[in-house]
Structures are given as structure tokens and as C-alpha cells.
Amino acid sequence: MKNTYTITAFSENHIGLLNRITIVFTRRHINIESLTVSSTEVKGIHRFTIVVEDTEEQVVKVVNQVEKLPEVLRAEWYLNDEIIYREIALYKIPIDVAIDKNIEQIMREFNAHMVDIQDGFVIIENTGHVEDTEKLYEVLKPYGILQFVRSGRISISKQKKELSTYLNELPVNEYVKE
């Protein structure tokens, strides 16, 4: 049965790793729904957060093949209820709409806030699950949205162990001098 899975992978910050990782997915014809790459709290280590819709069996195989890459430190997969996750969305709306009193009420309901005001438009930011940012989009749409953008998912697992604890347990690279 297909489900939404969030895959996180930690890798060395080297050129080309994004390519190597996505090849694992494209080879198996798995569409990546969302992808976020960013640096972690540990210098030189990057985190990939990849969302896919597939069967657990496929996801496990893909995670193993990602973890197999020599420069990937660890890869894991989660169901939605095993993580806290968010996407961020930005909405650009005309300034004359923004001064409508409905907008203030909408922003309050969605816990959204205004992040910038420019000549002619304002930018509203909202954070949540896709359904939340999607819903705000639908609500704002009648007022006229000039531009809309949504980030990929970031997530944090509900398990206790921190990445840095795990990384500190890893051996450092060892060289043998002649």
C-alpha cells in the first residue's frame, strides 16, 4: 500500500551528492514530491529531507541504497506520525487588498504574519502542513494573489537522540602516514 514517507539522509557536504542521491530515486522511477537540502548543526554535514509517495517495501530499498553511498552517513525513513514536519509558504498580495479588514482576520485564523511591505504589495508568510498553506491559498485567492511559493518539507523526528550525539560517536577519518 502506498503512503507518504519522509526520508532523511545525512551526508558529507561534497559536490554532486544531491545528484547521486536523486539517481537512486529516478532509477526506480520514484517521483520526489519534495526535497530540502540544508546544512546541519554539525559543520560539514548536510541533511536531505525527501518526501515520496510509495510502498514501505520500495522506501526501505531506496533508503538502503542511499545509505550505501560512501559519503552518506545515515539514511532513515518515517511515516508522517513519526515526525513533526512543516512547509513554509509566502503569498504576495496587492497592498489595497491587504488593508481590507478581512485579511487581518484571516491572518489571525491561520496564524500567518506579514513579513514585508513594498510599494504596491505585501508579503504574507505561513508555516504548516501542505493542507494548511493550501487552505490559506484558497482563502486568499479571491482577493488576488500576485505570487505564491512553497518550500519543501523540513522535519524532525520524535525520537530522542540528536544527530550531533550520533555523529560524535562516529569515528573520525583516519589516515596512515607512510
Binding site: S11, E12, P70, E71, V72, L73, L170, P171, V172, N173, E174, Y175, V176, K177, E178
Partner: peptide, 11 residues
């Protein structure tokens, strides 16, 4: 200055 490798943390 050549040094061969004994271990790499990600591998």
C-alpha cells in the same frame, strides 16, 4: 605527502 586511509566516518 602520501597517507593511505584506514577509515572514513561516513562509510
Amino acid at each position: 605527502n602520501y597517507k593511505s586511509i584506514k577509515s572514513i566516518r561516513s562509510y
